[in-house]
């Protein structure tokens, strides 16, 4: 805890508030100083902290992978190339196992999702107060460092995947084929309204469940780290260490699930029923 004057409630609220940049009620642009102020900014505001971290992680990921790809050798691979190739091979195996069509987009997309989400999740293992306290030194009131605990980030990914899936569904089956799939699927021609209702719910459930699953898991994990941080400092390790170790599993698992579901949705877009 940063100071003895704040209460537990304030501490938790502080940790759950994004550093938001947007238009204040008085018309000026700037950082929000509280959760309510951030909420008043409406849609045209940016969570500088989660988006910044997410962008930085994505750039690190691209930089490292691109550097390896540029210097890639077909001979004996070195340390970093080995790691990168392991990840690429893992993703490639998964894509080949679930997706039996030709597409240049799906494998790089799966790789991007897996590594990026994994890196965003790993931010959860950075000690909870470390970066926010560092942020305070630079005058930032709030700093949420785990991008995947921000619903904007996870839903952003999920919606992107959803758009790609819709795009390939239409490209593959034609607009008519895609509509027919929605209209005639479970009950044939005569159950059209019910079909449409069920299929559209089914379709919309995909991105929502995809995004909210990642968000929920990581948000809950983060929440428990926050609660553990409320304990006296000499006992914190007894809970935070086991939870962190268990959380390693969740971090990898959620990144993996996000990737696998993306591949599955893409495979469904390409498959004919």
């Amino acid at each position: 805890m940063s100071s003895e004057t704040i209460t537990s409630r304030e501490y938790i609220t502080h940790h759950l508030t994004n550093l938001t940049y947007g238009q204040h009620a008085d018309g000026t642009w700037g950082l929000a100083h509280s959760g309510e102020e951030a909420a008043q900014m409406g849609f045209w505001a940016l969570n500088v902290d989660t988006f910044g971290v997410s962008l930085a992680l994505g750039m690190i990921f691209m930089f490292v992978f691109h550097r390896v790809a540029k210097r890639v050798t077909t001979g004996v691979p070195g340390g970093m190339q080995n790691l990168v190739e392991m990840v690429v091979d893992f993703v490639d195996d998964n894509v080949k196992g679930m997706f039996h069509h030709q597409s240049k987009v799906i494998a790089p997309m799966a790789l991007t999702i897996f590594v990026w989400v994994l890196m965003m999740n790993i931010m959860d293992l950075v000690p909870i107060d470390f970066l926010p306290e560092l942020g305070k030194v630079f005058g930032l009131h709030f700093l949420k460092v785990v991008p995947s605990t921000d619903v904007n980030i996870t839903m952003g990914l999920a919606l992107s995947v959803f758009c790609v899936v819709i795009f390939f569904s239409i490209k593959q089956k034609g607009l008519g084929g895609f509509a027919a799939e929605l209209a005639f699927h479970p009950f044939g021609k005569f159950g059209l309204p019910i079909n449409l209702f069920l299929e559209i719910v089914n379709l919309l459930a995909k991105p929502i469940s995809l995004g909210l699953r990642l968000f929920g898991n990581l948000y809950a994990g983060e929440m428990i780290f926050i609660l553990i941080a409320l304990l006296p400092f000499w006992i914190q390790w007894a809970l935070s260490v086991p939870w962190a170790i268990f959380h390693i599993l969740i971090i990898v698992l959620q990144a993996f699930i996000f990737m696998v579901l993306t591949i599955v949705y893409m495979a469904m877009a390409f498959d004919d029923h």
């Binding site: 759950l16 994004n18 938001t20 947007g22 951030a38 909420a39 900014m41 409406g42 849609f43 045209w44 505001a45 940016l46 969570n47 989660t50 988006f51 997410s54 962008l55 994505g58 990921f61 691209m62 987009v105 790089p108 997309m109 991007t112 990026w116 921000d150 619903v151 904007n152 980030i153 839903m155 952003g156 990914l157 919606l159 992107s160 758009c163």
Partner: peptide, 19 residues
């Protein structure tokens, strides 16, 4: 927990990274 323009930023950066 507000939905705001971050979601658009994320969509755009995702597209760029995938590309």
């Amino acid at each position: 927990m507000n939905i705001n323009a971050t979601i658009l930023g994320q969509v755009i950066s995702f597209a760029i990274f995938v590309w």
